[in-house]
Amino acid sequence: MNLTKDQMLNLYETMVKIREFEEKAKELMLGGKLAGFLHLYCGEEAIAAGVCANLNDKDCITSTHRGHGHIIAKGGDINRMMAELHGKATGYCKGKSGSMHIADLDIGIVGANGIVGAGLPIAVGVAFALRYKKMDNVVVAFFGDGASNRGTFHEALNMASVLNLPVVFICENNHFGMSTPQSVHQKIKDISVRGTAYDIPGKTVDGNDVLAVHEAAAEAIGRARKGGGPSLIECKTWRHYGHFIGDPEPYKDPEEQKKWLATDPIPRFAKYLIESNYAIQADLDAIKNSVREKIEAAVRYAQSSPDPLPEDIYSDVYAG
């Protein structure tokens, strides 16, 4: 698939935006400005960017505890995200969610989720509703290698398969289920083989190659949109940091970490853009600087926003 220069640069900008957002969140967390847990997406940016570039605002996603990248790539407002991380009333969820459950229903973000593997069956339900309403939209369910061992993964893939629903299951295989290496938590190497069990196409791609991800996702999303049913795409990647901020990562082999950091999707794509004459270094620097300014503005927005009121504890438990 041929992407225009603008599309290429948009992919780059999305990846940089995610990285900068996450690095800023890390800094804020370590500086004692944020409460709760923070699961950083650094290193996996090519997946969210490459997949979501194929989606429109009526298409939907379900996300995970490591969800900031998906929200940003789907077009989420970083001001409201940052405010949510700070627990502010102006946050996406009025401070009721924090990092792990951000949603924006207006642009198809049905929600990140604090329970590993919980998004998959929900994505199947969203797809059911889209088809019920005769829309040609699709749903992408992001999840990790850890979630591929949950019953919900198997139930959701099977359900989507038998109902022939427009869902694309994107497995971000970062090679660790929390602290447990993939080789310890499952015997298979390629999670995409599990598609066979449900008679749906399964494909493994280099998750640190944004163009490879984009192409595979385009094919699967296009098929789902035309009524061709669900697909499973495994994107092999690497979590630059631990499971959460504060995780000392005793389970990571330093050599392997070094090897993977050399395939960091952002400098890798930058190199490609320059070598293929889509951009010069100054263009990329300008993107990064502009993104950094937006992130700083988001932090200012969040930190100057009002806190929720004590009585807000009681709102939104029930509708009506």
Binding site: L105, P121, V126, A129, T152
Partner: peptide, 15 residues
């Protein structure tokens, strides 16, 4: 799990 999950997703979309 997939039955209730299906319902949650469908309900979130207005069914």
């Amino acid at each position: 799990s997939a039955i209730i999950g299906l319902g949650v997703g469908a309900a979130a979309m207005g069914l």
